[in-house]
């Protein structure tokens, strides 16, 4: 009896090992993601939990939303996690993903020098603030990189009926870089810029910048997640990618997102529509 049990155990061990090693090979996914989620440290916090609960190893490539979508269209990612609703819908409409899921939101804030030359502090309306910045020709630092933040900024300029272009180049500066690099430049030039709250809160080089405008419903910043379609990209790891998305949308995942804090501030608000 004892012998039989030992035999059974050894078979079980071998079997488990085989299954595990086979599973390991396709339990890795690449997530094309926006920078804000990575720079804020969110992934650092949730990925070990994802690994624990689903066994999936997530490799995050953090680039601007524009580049992330482009990379995903090139089939260089299994999952896309970005924040630019219009382009996400286009991504789905063109068949690169079957479905888009809301997972969380945070908000954008307008930061600027404490001296506030445009006098926008405590305004409740982002468009008005932009209008004042343009009117006083105060330095504004733009991402200029087709990221989610950049397209949000464009929408706000549109709402303010201001069209910054080359003629406004004296005060309107496009960095063509990520949020962090743009914040470094804004700090250096004592200029205004639009940033997501998560990146801002965890940003280490604030210099004399401060949040001047927040709370406008136009500054709402929802994040969406999509599984890249197997029809467009046959190499997509659907199983593990879906497991990752399911985890994000599950109660565990949503609780974890809300529990992530920097300097005791909550950066992302769970927002799945189950």
């Amino acid at each position: 009896m004892k012998q039989l049990r030992a035999k059974y155990a050894s078979v079980l061990i071998v079997f488990t090992c085989t299954v595990m090693s086979a599973a390991l090979a396709d339990q890795r996914i690449v997530v094309q993601s926006t920078t804000s989620t990575k720079n804020s440290g969110l992934y650092h916090y949730i990925l070990p939990l994802v690994k624990r609960d689903t066994g999936v190893t997530v490799h995050v490539v953090a680039v601007g939303t524009g580049a992330a979508i482009k990379n995903a269209m090139n089939c260089d990612g299994d999952v896309l996690l970005v924040h630019s609703r219009k382009r996400e819908d286009k991504f789905v409409a063109e068949g690169y993903a079957k479905q888009r899921h809301d997972i969380m939101y945070n908000d954008y804030v307008i930061v600027g020098p404490q001296s506030d030359p445009a006098g926008i502090a405590d305004l409740r309306n982002a468009a008005t603030a932009f209008n004042k910045i343009a009117a006083t020709k105060s330095t504004f630092v733009s991402r200029g990189d087709m990221s989610g933040t950049h397209s949000k900024e464009g929408a706000l300029w549109h709402a303010a009926s201001v069209l910054p272009d080359t003629s406004s180049a004296k005060w309107y500066r496009q960095t063509g870089s990520g949020m962090g690099a743009t914040l470094n430049i804004a700090a250096g030039m004592a200029g205004y810029t639009l940033t997501d709250r998560a990146t801002w809160t965890s940003f280490g080089n604030k210099a004399d910048l401060d949040i001047l405008v927040e709370g406008d419903k136009n500054l709402f910043n929802p994040y969406g997640v999509m599984l890249v379609s197997k029809d467009k990209c046959p190499t997509v790891n659907t199983k593990s990618g879906q497991a990752f998305i399911d985890w994000l949308l599950s109660d565990t995942g949503q609780t974890a997102i809300s529990a992530f804090r920097v300097d005791d501030k909550q950066l992302f608000f769970a927002h799945a529509q189950q």
Partner: peptide
């Protein structure tokens, strides 16, 4: 590059 973009310039 990452630390710079996070504004952690000393790091």
């Amino acid at each position: 590059a990452l630390e710079t973009s996070k504004g952690e310039l000393e790091m």
